[in-house]
Nucleic acid binder design. Structure first.
Length: 481
RNA sequence: GGCCCCAUCGUCUAGUGGUUAGGACACCGGCCUCUCACGUCGGUAACGCGGGUUCGACUCCCGCUGGGGUCACCA
């Protein structure tokens, strides 16, 4: 049997990083087994589902490269288009007495729940309507038509339901602990636990891969499968991703959406690599290409315990991919970030690549790269007053002037070698060390005391801009006296 | 609170009865050096506790403790 996994996000917000990791594992498992990866949109909650969220989810998945074999834009993969199927399944259960109408109101239920909580009893449904008589061909709820009831699944009262999880092992649930859950709401919309079962069955999903927060739902879903006369799929419940405080990762932990990382200048490879390595391992290997991930991935490599999201390690991985990338690719990728920072995009790609070459070992993200590139991208450099006070003193004016003259006389050869030789002549003439000249020059050219190697900076800046900034600095130095 | 899951350095993890408990991020120090980085070399740092089983437990079993998840007409 070919493996079929699915990822079923609901379009009620951004694509969350913990959530997408579950999808990634489902994707890797499918690819590893030459199976199919299905994308289904769980949009039964019409109140909260939005087109914007859907677009963001699809774009996020495309960005990280989790391509799906079946799914949008095919309308069959939207739950909102599948109500007929859910209705049919619910009627079947009703007909067979495996489900029943419940006339309790939401308010009643809420009151009972609170009451139970006060008395420290379990808050589940008490089964009030479970044994009420009803016609087997009863219609499904429809608020507009005055059929203001819900449909509940009649779950077995005795016995156990066993989940043999591919990651967690065996979990045994007492059926007596499981109350009768609502499968159709009074507005005629099926609930998650029901719709997901119908769809997993209809799409012939063989392995349900999801976060272990779904583990408590699993016995219920298995029961519905069986009530429908179907065999449940295999389950693999992944440990969750936690925030630094040890609780389930959520918005309040800061940047958690895929878009947030994309916009912060992270590479999809880094995010994938990081997420895959959180909760899964292959010996001591840390860096994985997509192909390796697919080749090595298996549930046996998955751990059982929750992992804490470590932003620093992600950053390190991003840095790794930054250094590994080709300059031409980086040049292409950095352009939108340059534009967003308010600079005009350099027209000369060769020059842009040279610029990036001097910065890539100093920036961990594309955003950082652009930030470091300010003095290359703008003619209006801001000289840090503290740096100027320390390095642009009257006595260096003469040395800077000498360097400017040397550089000017270089003619057409503005290579790093030629620049280094020019420095050498100035150093010799004044009998000073490189550091004594390099720092004032650095402040003059970049505005600060930290930058790539000074020869590189000069070579990238070019003769014109270098001399202009040098001369401005000379004036500043003289005025400091 | 009921139910379920989990437990090796701060973090991600390797380990499947006998290891000086390994790697990675972070951190600290040396080297390199025009600043900052990169790189490189080295270092600090872990088997939650208590019982068993066994010649021998990080590894197996039980209990405890701790952490997490879940208990909706959300998904």
């Amino acid at each position: 049997m070919t493996v079929r996994t699915r990822y079923a996000p609901s379009p009620t917000g951004s694509l969350h990083i913990g959530n997408v990791r579950s999808g990634l594992f489902a994707y890797l498992f499918a690819r590893h087994n030459q199976g199919a990866f299905i994308l289904r949109i769980d949009d039964t909650d019409r109140e909260r589902s939005t087109k914007e969220s859907l677009d963001e989810i699809l774009e996020s998945l495309r960005w990280i490269g989790m391509e799906w074999d079946e799914g949008p834009p095919d309308p069959r993969y939207f739950q909102s288009n599948r109500f007929a199927l859910y209705r049919e399944a619910a009627r079947k259960l009703l007909r067979e007495g495996k489900a029943y109408p419940c006339y309790c109101t939401a308010e009643e239920l809420e009151a009972k729940r609170k009451q139970a909580e006060r008395e420290r009893r379990k808050p589940g449904y008490d089964g009030k309507c479970r044994d009420l008589a009803f016609p087997p061909d009863i219609e499904l709820p429809d608020r507009d038509a005055g059929r203001n009831y819900t449909i509940r699944f009649r779950s077995p009262r005795e016995g156990q339901t066993v989940v043999d999880d591919l990651i967690k092992g065996r979990a045994v649930f007492e059926n007596s602990e499981l109350d009768d859950l609502i499968i159709f709401r009074s507005d005629g919309v099926p609930t998650y636990n029901f719709a997901t079962v119908i769809d997993d069955a209809d799409f012939r999903v063989t392995h349900v891969v999801r976060g272990d927060d779904h583990l408590p739902n699993t016995p219920r879903q298995m029961q519905i499968f069986r009530a429908l006369g179907l065999e449940p799929p295999a389950y693999a419940h992944l440990p969750m991703v936690m925030g630094p405080d040890g609780t389930k990762l959520s918005k309040r932990h800061g940047a958690t959406s895929v878009f947030a990382y994309r916009d912060a200048g992270y590479f999809p490879e880094a995010l994938i690599n990081y997420l895959a390595r959180l909760g899964w391992s292959h010996g001591d290997q840390e860096i994985f290409t997509r192909q390796e991930l697919i080749e090595y991935f298996d549930f046996s490599g998955c751990g059982k315990s929750a992992g804490i999201f470590n932003a620093e390690k992600l950053l390190w991985l991003n840095f790794h991919y930054m250094k590994q990338r080709s300059l031409s690719q980086l040049a292409r990728e950095v352009k939108p970030f340059i534009a967003r920072a308010g600079y005009s995009i350099p027209g000369d790609d060769a020059w842009l690549e040279k610029m990036i070459a001097t910065l890539r070992e100093r920036a961990k993200t594309l955003v950082e790269l652009v930030d470091f590139a300010k003095f290359y991208l703008s003619d209006e450099i801001a000289i840090d007053p503290k740096a100027a006070a320390r390095f642009l003193k009257p006595q260096v004016a003469e040395q800077l002037a000498a360097l400017a003259a040397e550089l000017e006389s270089l003619g057409g050869d503005f290579s790093e070698t030629a620049i280094a030789e020019a420095f050498g002549r100035v150093l010799e003439r004044f009998a000073i060390k490189l550091g004594q000249l390099a720092q004032p020059v650095r402040v003059a050219l970049t505005g600060g005391t930290v930058s790539p190697g000074i020869y590189e900076v000069i070579a990238v800046l070019g003769k014109e801009r270098t001399l202009r900034r040098l001369r401005a600095a000379i004036k500043l130095a003289q005025a400091a006296g």
